[in-house]
Computed example of a mutant assay.
Amino acid sequence: MVLYLSLICFNLFVHGRRIALLSFGECSYKSVMNMHQMADLAKNTRELKSILYGNSESEPVPEACAQLTQEFFRENTLRLLIICLPKLNLETRKDATQVVANLQRQQVNSRLIASDYLEKNTDLLDILIAGYENTDMALHYGVMLKECIRHQSVARYVLESPHVKKFFDYIQLPNFDISADAAATFKELLTRHKSTVAEFLSKNYDWFFAEFNSKLLESTNYITRRQSIKVGETFDIFLDQSMKLSSRHLNLGKGLH
């Protein structure tokens, strides 16, 4: 028996505008996510995007963005968008991707509450990473993941989880756009939070660079080797920043060119 999540609708008044958001309600054994609700979700996602990015007639209002951000995470709407994304049409997927990306940067009372939310809901990160295995969803989830990695707690979770090893395979995927996006995400993961990455590399040098060399640098596929060099340039950044890495990293960094 498949367990589905039922959905409830709540009204959000943002800067005088009524937005009907869908959020997760209690679990049940039947799905109440019908076509009408999907249409509402598409419409409301466009409204969210308009508030966060503004439109041809008005700029985003900081107070409205802060209120929307607070309600969005309070009502678990991020989970809704990520899980339901494969069921949405292409335009709504694009809107949802932009909304999720923008919300990673929105502050409420000087706090990035997206970081706090993701730290408590790491299963959503598992979904985003696994998205590279779905041709239709890879680029959408990839954009979301790169923005989530802006949060140090998220980057640390990915680096310390078994997921980090999957990137060695994702960068070798035959679809160029997806493999390139995976390489860009991997590079972001290895550059955004330098102290976290330096700690990770100091503890995981042997297996990490064994995988990096055997699967990427020594690949028979030219594109994969080029992608690996772009990722490998990451280690030069550590050298430029005088990070305290071992001489083994230093030698590898020089050997990438």
Results as ranks from 00 to 15, higher is better:
Leu103Ile: 08
Leu103Gly: 08
Gln106His: 03
Gln106Arg: 01
Gln107Asn: 04
Asn109Phe: 04
Ser110Cys: 07
Ser110Arg: 09
Arg111Ser: 13
Leu112Asp: 03
Leu112Ile: 01
Ile113Ala: 03
Ile113His: 09
Ile113Met: 08
Ile113Arg: 14
Ala114His: 09
Ala114Tyr: 15
Ala114Glu: 03
Ser115Cys: 08
Asp116Phe: 13
Asp116Val: 11
Glu119Met: 14
Asp123Lys: 01
Asp123Ala: 08
Leu124Ser: 15
Leu124His: 08
Asp126Phe: 09
Asp126Trp: 05
Ile127Tyr: 09
Ile129Arg: 08
Ile129Ala: 02
Tyr132Met: 06
Tyr132Asp: 02
Glu133His: 11
Thr135Gly: 13
Asp136Glu: 14
Asp136Cys: 05
Ala138Ile: 10
Leu139Asn: 02
Leu139Tyr: 02
Leu139Met: 05
Val143Met: 12
Met144Leu: 10
Met144Ala: 09
Met144Phe: 15
Met144Asn: 09
Leu145His: 05
Lys146Pro: 03
Glu147Ile: 00
Glu147Gln: 13
Cys148Val: 05
Cys148Ile: 04
Cys148Glu: 05
Arg150Asn: 14
Arg150Leu: 14
His151Arg: 01
Gln152Val: 14
Ser153Gly: 11
Ser153Asp: 15
Val154Arg: 01
Tyr157Gln: 03
Tyr157Gly: 12
Ser161His: 08
Ser161Gly: 06
Ser161Phe: 15
Pro162Leu: 13
His163Arg: 07
His163Tyr: 13
Val164Ser: 10
Val164Gly: 07
Lys165Pro: 10
Phe167Ser: 02
Phe167Asn: 01
Asp169His: 08
Asp169Glu: 12
Tyr170Leu: 01
Ile171Gln: 09
Gln172Asn: 12
Gln172His: 08
Gln172Leu: 10
Pro174Met: 07
Asn175Arg: 02
Asn175His: 05
Phe176Ile: 10
Ser179Arg: 00
Ala182Tyr: 11
Ala183Ile: 02
Ala183Gly: 07
Thr185Tyr: 14
Phe186Ile: 01
Leu189Gly: 06
Arg192Pro: 07
Arg192His: 07
Arg192Thr: 13
Arg192Met: 13
Lys194Leu: 10
Ser195Phe: 05
Ser195Cys: 12
Ser195Thr: 14
Ala198Ser: 14
Ala198Asp: 10
Ala198His: 00
Phe200Ile: 02
Phe200Ala: 00
Ser202Trp: 06
Lys203Arg: 02
Asn204Ala: 01
Asp206Met: 04
Trp207Asn: 10
Phe208Met: 06
Phe208Val: 04
Phe209Ser: 09
Phe209Ile: 02
Phe209Cys: 06
Phe209Leu: 08
Phe209Glu: 04
Phe212Arg: 01
Phe212Met: 11
Ser214Arg: 03
Ser214Met: 15
Ser214Cys: 12
Lys215Trp: 12
